[in-house]
Design a protein around this nucleic acid. Structure first.
Lengths: 187, 187
DNA sequence: ACCTGAACACCGTTCAAGT
DNA sequence: ACCTGAACACCGTTCAAGT
């Protein structure tokens, strides 16, 4: 049993993934959800709030995937898996990635909570990696921010074509993650 | 003497900076440039191409500012100044930053050339910093990519509110740049 | 409480025409 | 070569009304 609200979020996410932001029209969202073109206004204040709900759902799923990547693995390995997973997810659905980490939707408390939860899952593994000596000491939140910023930036630059594409300078986001972990002394 | 084309680019950049992407309408761009609402089509194939021209101009200016930041300074200091300048520029004009590094405008060869030039200016300083021992050896383009990805990611996450805002985990993009340089052993 | 259909203002783009 | 004004299709949003 999916509520109309969930059907609207599904439809919006599908349209975004398939056709980019321009394809997400409330008219088409309504049509796919089997309701009229302005039924969305009974569930969301406006289009931006609908998109914020799509982003919040993506963040929730990422946080879950991040925690899964950490299970049954030594911290250093879990760390690498989480960061690689971040880049892989973005490469698989660039439009959704851009929405989720795009311009901030102030209206949504859900989004803020989901973002905090996703970050917390990552910080936990950083703490564990520091405890077993595979990451240097220091404020774990700040070290986590360093790694998240790196993987986010590498991913975003790769998507927009601002990373050298070929030749000796070529590097995937995953390569840059490995470079950073190497410089940090993670084993 | 500014051509109509330059006036259109100016108007579009102004509107973007002031009111975000939604404020950039061809009608208002034309009005500010003193022409009709579809005169832009005589200079650009469509709206996207106009925005690509705005982005290319921004990249050119950044490349120039990056080279300026490197003059009369030891490499390690120049490096830090360039990276801090990157973050500062983005904080000063977030909308322009998002446009320039946002979804790729395939149509524009100018944009690709401008992006390559901006990157090259940075790589030169990395090479100099490696030569005087303030950066570790290795492929300079790849090391440059690591630093650019970090400052880009930190900046983008800060703009979208995905970086911890307060408390012990708080870190500016500039702080994360310094952290990375510290881990790389830059003096 | 949730939904519909008509309507409004606005936008990107096209086209025929002007100089 | 560059520009204008009218027109078209489309979109987000509002509103009065229905169950």
């Amino acid at each position: 049993m999916t509520s109309t609200r969930d059907a609207l979020i599904d439809a919006a996410a599908d349209l975004l993934t398939t056709g980019g932001p321009a394809a997400v029209t409330l008219r088409e969202v309504g049509r796919r959800a089997g309701v009229s073109h302005n039924a969305p206004y009974k569930h969301f204040a406006d289009k931006e709030e609908l998109l914020a709900a799509v982003a919040a759902r993506d963040l929730d799923r990422r946080a879950a995937a991040t925690r899964r990547a950490a299970r049954y693995r030594p911290p250093a390995e879990a760390l690498r898996a989480m960061l690689h997973g971040y880049a892989r997810h973005a490469a698989r659905d660039p439009e959704l990635f851009r929405l989720t980490y795009g311009s901030w939707h102030d209206g949504s408390a859900d989004l803020g909570a989901a973002a905090t939860a996703a970050r917390a899952a990552f910080v936990d593994v950083v703490v564990a990696a520091q405890a077993d000596g595979s990451l240097p000491p220091g404020d774990p939140e700040r070290l986590a921010a360093l790694m998240l910023a790196l993987v986010h930036g590498a991913t975003d630059l790769a998507l927009s074509g601002h990373l050298a594409r070929r030749g000796k300078g070529h590097a995937d986001p995953a390569d840059l993650v490995d470079d950073l972990l190497g410089h940090l002394g993670a084993r």
